[in-house]
Design a protein around this nucleic acid. Structure first.
Length: 639
DNA sequence: GCGGATCAC
DNA sequence: TATGGTGATCCGC
């Protein structure tokens, strides 16, 4: 975005500034100062509830959660820097005295209900944002009782305290966006009132840091700061021209111009939306990374007879039954083990990576993670290619250490809710990903039965599969092209897996390295030093030890390899009669452009694999093989 | 409709 | 030793 900013001419900027100014005027015209909204936020809710049921915790630093993750911490613990969403073992280091209390949602739900009974007295249609937060439209109650927003807030907070013994904070403002910001100002056990006055709102919002705004998270904050120099809401307006030039004009979304400008103006929603029904239901578990297929299947569902608590499909099914839901889209979520640090280190050392290169590595990381897919897949993550500015630090953390999340979904013809159905389709989704090493799996069902209400679709219209199978279609031969119901594509998948077994050698080969690069390898200082010295032995040059082997030379080698691949092997695939693959005989019409490309890639991958093993037997220093793998991925990625 | 990404709590 | 779980939404195919 910075680059795009730089490209703008003075003319462009003044043009966009005009457009932005017009938008600002339009938005200003929509400003609604007629409502009074109140945002209530319970203070350290879970921690406070736990203290209530165990008063001996009072005054001591305490956190709700475990060694893996903390949900919330009381104010004593916060003084040490302990925060929600912090891993427990880190919190321990910050505060060795810290007391841990496991989460108990039953308790929190109970107290949440008590608070909501109080909220109801002020707004029957209040919006519950979570167990411990709610928005109330107190316009009417203020009028009826002739009280100010501040007075109502005082009374409500007192009521909550009497009812529960807990304290809360409140913000009163003309809209929800502002009310939320306000409730944070005098936290804990305090309140802040922003009057329904345009000047007051503008003065208030001008100095608010953008991160305080709901919807602006870590990433958006970083983009706005880094690319536009926007730190406060006021600057949203000042840099309106730039924002206008680079953000979409769509009317919704937290990443659109209208949203950013309204934040700058302190404009937010004032309506009471109708209660929205849920759109999906899911269950997921984190576990210690494994690539054991039986174990992975077992995480989805235990073998018959053995019921484990951590059975994802069963948990989901139970929840669905509770809510009486049936859905027809099933999504499998996967979190792969973190990208091996040692593997990354080898890349760094081998290629003297610049920042640019590191971005590439991140792009290739998913390919490296999963060599089988890498050969067929042409879609690595695009995150690194969006022109975001990356600090070296950011790259190191996200490129090397960040785990990768994927999802795979099917939409079925029938609505499902039984554990068997969920499991059947989930297993197929998982099967297509094997082999893989995972540390999390999750299942989500969406596209519920009720979704249809109000949808313009014609229930009598047949699906494509039905259309073909039922014989309405005159082109029965379509079936001969291998078009199947995706749900029933097991055979095809099996074929892929079979074809790809040879490719797994890339991965298998790694285990023959002097020290293995297995995913989720433990990284210790000792380990790392050992690895570096082994890199040396294997002929890898290290920074500062480079003679003729400069980064340029490295690039040259890669480019040479690329050139060879492109000229010789790219065109060797011939479609006989423009129809049949000369290598394996598979039939594919010429208009299946992408499918054909993928098919060629597959044969290419096969070929590369063979080449690599022959090189491996001839010479093969670690360095050479890294070159080879790098070039291979580069080529496939570019394809 | 799918998959990645972001966000809230 | 060790960095969660649930749900929503948006964007670009």
């Amino acid at each position: 975005m910075r680059a795009q900013c730089a490209k703008l001419s003075a003319n462009d900027i003044s043009h966009y500034q005009t457009v932005a100014d017009r938008r600002i005027l339009e938005l200003e015209a929509t400003r609604d100062l007629s409502r009074i909204w109140l945002h209530v936020d319970m203070d350290a809710f879970y921690a406070a509830v736990e203290t209530l049921s165990n008063p001996s915790l009072k005054g001591k630093p305490m956190a709700v959660g475990g060694m893996s993750m903390i949900s919330t911490a009381n104010y004593e613990a916060r003084r040490f820097g302990v925060r929600a969403a912090m891993p427990g073992f880190i919190a321990c280091k910050l505060c060795p005295e810290l007391i841990f209390v496991p989460t108990d949602f039953k308790k929190y739900t109970h107290y949440s209900e008590l608070t909501r009974k109080v909220f109801e007295k002020y707004d029957l249609n209040f919006l519950a944002a979570s167990l411990d937060e709610a928005y109330l439209d107190i316009t009417e109650v203020c009028k009826e009782r002739g009280m100010s927003g501040g007075e109502i807030a005082e009374e409500l907070r007192k009521g909550v305290n009497e009812e529960t013994g807990l304290t809360c904070s409140a913000g009163v403002a003309p809209n929800r966006l502002l009310a939320k910001v306000c409730s944070d100002i005098n936290k804990p056990n305090g309140q802040f009132v922003l009057p329904n006055d345009r000047l007051a709102v503008m003065t208030f919002i001008s100095s608010v840091p953008i991160r305080k705004i709901g919807g602006i998270g870590k990433v958006t904050e970083h983009i706005l700061k880094d690319a536009f120099g926007i730190n406060t809401c006021e600057e949203m307006i000042q840099k309106g021209g730039l924002l206008c030039a680079l953000f979409s004009h769509s009317t919704a979304g937290s990443h659109c111009l209208v949203f950013f400008l309204s934040v700058g103006l302190g404009i937010g929603k004032t309506d009471t939306p109708q209660v929205r029904s849920r759109k999906s239901i899911s269950s997921e578990r984190t576990f210690s990374a494994t690539d054991d297929e039986a174990l992975l299947y077992q995480k989805l569902a235990s073998p018959v007879g053995i019921v484990l608590a951590a059975d994802i499909a069963d948990m989901l099914c139970t929840d669905m039954k509770k809510e009486g839901l049936c859905g027809r889209t099933l999504t499998l979520k996967l979190k792969t083990a973190s990208f091996g640090f040692l593997a990354s280190l080898q890349f760094l050392l081998a290629f003297h990576l610049t920042v640019e290169d590191m971005i590439k590595v991140r792009r290739y990381a998913p390919l490296l993670m999963d060599s089988r897919r890498a050969m067929l897949c042409t879609c690595p993550t695009k995150a690194g290619s969006r022109g975001m500015t990356w600090t070296v630090d950011k790259i190191l953390t996200s490129c090397i250490l960040q785990e990768m999340v994927r999802s795979r979904a099917v939409t079925l013809e029938k609505y499902i809710c039984s554990c068997e159905d969920i499991l059947k389709h989930a297993s197929k989704l998982l099967k297509a990903e094997l082999p893989i090493s995972l540390r999390l799996m999750g299942l989500r069902v969406s596209h519920f039965n009720e979704d249809k209400i109000g949808a313009p679709s014609d229930p009598t219209q047949k699906t494509l599969t039905n259309f073909i199978v039922s014989g309405d279609s005159s082109s029965h031969e379509l079936l001969h092209y291998g078009i199947r119901d995706p749900v029933d594509s097991n055979n095809q998948r099996d074929l892929d897996v079979h074809h790809c077994t040879s490719i797994d050698n890339v991965e298998a080969e790694k285990t023959h390295e002097p020290s293995s690069n297995k995913i989720a390898d433990k990284v210790t200082a000792k380990n790392m030093l050992g690895e570096v010295s082994q890199c040396k032995e294997a002929g890898l040059s290290l920074p500062g030890q480079i003679e003729g082997k400069s980064a340029d030379r490295t690039n040259q080698v890669i480019m040479d390899n690329e050139a060879v691949f492109s000229s010789e092997q790219r065109d060797e695939l011939v479609w006989v009669d423009d129809y049949k693959c000369s290598l394996c005989g598979i039939e594919m019409p010429s208009n299946f452009v992408e499918e054909r490309q993928e098919h060629s890639d597959f044969h290419l991958a096969e070929r590369l694999q063979k080449d690599e093993s022959s090189i491996d037997s001839r010479t093969s220093t670690l360095r050479q093989r890294l070159f080879f793998i790098y070039a291979m991925y580069t080529y496939i990625y570019d394809q």
